[in-house]
Design a binder for these strands. Structure first.
Lengths: 329, 329
DNA sequence: TATAATCATGGAAACGTTTCCACCACAGGA
DNA sequence: TCCTGTGGTGGAAACGTTTCCATGATTATA
């Protein structure tokens, strides 16, 4: 790394002169300026922002951070909308940290940034990680996740699962299955529990549970499901994206199967897909607001958890059969 | 601002001891530790991350930035996916800067961050802003935008407009209208030009152009359009979201109207909506890749623009009429 | 009791800037 | 000739940490 000292030596001038040339502050003779500029470009000098910030005393604490799982599901888009809305009202800015292949790295990355507080989306943190953040005086707030004594905003997944089950029961279904994600997220476990327990209590237990590696595989899962259990008359999908991807398989079945998704993404309305509505944007907004209050010491200890309720949105009939004319690719 | 020096003075210990207590490195006697910790919390000490980074030599140049317009359209979600995919392959991280109410502020914010390069999404930068970034040795790359001699990846909107027009002509439409956004983005201007010019060249000029403040208002726009121009037999929407929001109005019309959207968002497939496909994720991926090459000096000057082509995706029939049963809210 | 090992501790040096002050050379004015 | 101002320059100090080395105190070992 080239520093100003290197440049000064190379150009045969003093440190101050280099600084003056780089920043255009103060007087420098034409001759000297040229020498310095030559050295600057020869040595490919880049000012060190850290050092600059240190001396200017500008610690720039105007950011909130969001730690997200792999950036792949539209659900997050809506939550982020809400987060942004609040953050913007406060004239702050937002940094997204992707909890990708190396979760630990994400944490160490974000600790290097000058953020005031952190929203952690859809998953928990290890006690070590929490301690680390606390040590940095970094307040945090969970979104779409809950834990014993943690602060945050979440949507009641158990209740959502129950709502779905009640829908299938009300529709008179006798053989209901679940299609979800590989990987045991808290969200899926709770939805599934609420769902299967309600069915069971009604003396109408779940007949099958298929987990797929990606939502794009849910059509195959449904085909397998219907082959194994031709009696299936209802399918609860972990999310709308799973449900939507399964539409072709449902169309092939040419059989009346009650379907329920989850999330209530915009497009479900136009598809006639019954789903469980999650107040996504609200959760984002409220989460950001809570974090803001926590950071500013305005959140009473018993005012640090918000539980939002999902709701059933009944729609139908399903828009099936528009797949054959698809000429994409 | 409380510094370690203050703490040391208050606790009557040396600088090194404070550092050891704060970081838990090296041995400290119980007694001393307690004194220091008392001072720490009394004076509400927060370590200065800037100073830390300076000394650790970790300039943290592992970030790319994305400067985005208001975070409101799903389109960006797909572009971001592609960006993330590449950035992650490089074991880097991403910071999102929202170009909200105060675009200048966003720039000054992002200049304070240690980012290697910046992707600018869907809009241009003023010459002053560009100069500013250049001065900071911050490479940039435009996404979904193009300019005289600028580097970046964009999708040919003029061509997309033409494709849409050709679709309406092929379907034998005689009275075609456009419904778009208030606000004259480059994207809309070019799409509209390509669209109206193609229609005109075919001797079948556009009959109306409605601009709505938000896509959610497009149903009303369509109702007004059909009232003013009952002869309308085709509508080109600026984006799929506009088209989708107009579905109820189209259902009411109970008349065969050819519709074409733009973007090819996932759900259009299941709605039977004809649309212009944009390679969104590809654009994000390629943009990030190009920025990476530029930053690492591996991009030849004539290798700094990529133009992607949209394509027509014909679908149908439109899934109309599932709106009445919607019990949401 | 002497020697070595270990534990605690203080503080200087370094990180790469910016800012400020001091200095020099030279011009112009008295 | 001597001031005085000024454009040009060098480098010390400061920003708030971490790291390392030296030192003193304590304990274990012989």
């Amino acid at each position: 790394m080239t520093t100003m000292k290197d440049i000064a030596k190379r150009a045969g001038v003093g440190l101050g002169t280099v600084s003056r040339v780089v920043n255009g502050t103060g007087p420098v003779s034409q001759e000297t300026r040229e020498k310095v500029e030559a050295a600057l470009s020869e040595m490919n000098y880049r000012p060190n922002r850290i050092a600059r910030k240190l001396v200017s005393g500008n610690t720039g604490r105007g950011f909130y951070g969001v730690l997200m799982p792999l950036f792949i599901h539209p659900f997050y888009f809506y939550v982020l909308r809400g987060v942004y809305r609040f953050v913007e009202e406060q004239d702050m800015n937002l940094i997204l940290f992707n909890r990708g292949k190396h979760p630990e790295e994400a944490i160490s990355h974000l600790m290097q940034e000058d953020i005031l507080g952190l929203m952690v989306m859809s998953h928990g943190l290890s006690p070590e990680e929490e301690a680390l953040l606390k040590n940095e005086k970094l307040d945090l707030c969970y979104l779409d996740y809950h834990q014993e004594r943690s602060q945050g905003v979440w949507i009641d997944n158990h209740y959502g699962g129950r709502l779905a089950a009640e829908h299938f029961l009300a529709r008179g279904c006798k053989a209901v299955a679940f299609v979800g994600d590989l990987g045991n997220s808290q969200q899926q476990i709770e939805r599934f529990d609420g769902f299967s327990q309600t069915l069971e209590a009604a003396g109408n237990p779940l007949i099958a549970r298929h987990l797929v590696p990606r939502e794009y595989a849910s059509a195959d899962a449904v085909r397998r499901l219907l082959a194994d259990h031709p009696e299936t008359d209802g399918i609860f999908f972990f999310s709308d994206t799973h449900a939507v991807e399964a539409l072709p398989a449902l169309a092939e079945a040419a059989k009346d199967i009650v379907v329920c998704g989850y999330d209530d993404l915009d497009f479900t309305r136009y598809l006639g897909l019954t789903t469980i509505h999650q107040p996504k944007e609200e959760m984002g907004y409220e989460g950001a607001k809570m974090l803001h209050r926590i950071v500013h010491g305005q959140a009473a200890p018993d005012d640090r958890t918000i539980t939002l309720k999902p709701s059933l949105v009944t729609r139908g009939p399903l828009a099936l059969g528009h797949f054959s004319e698809d000429q994409k690719r």
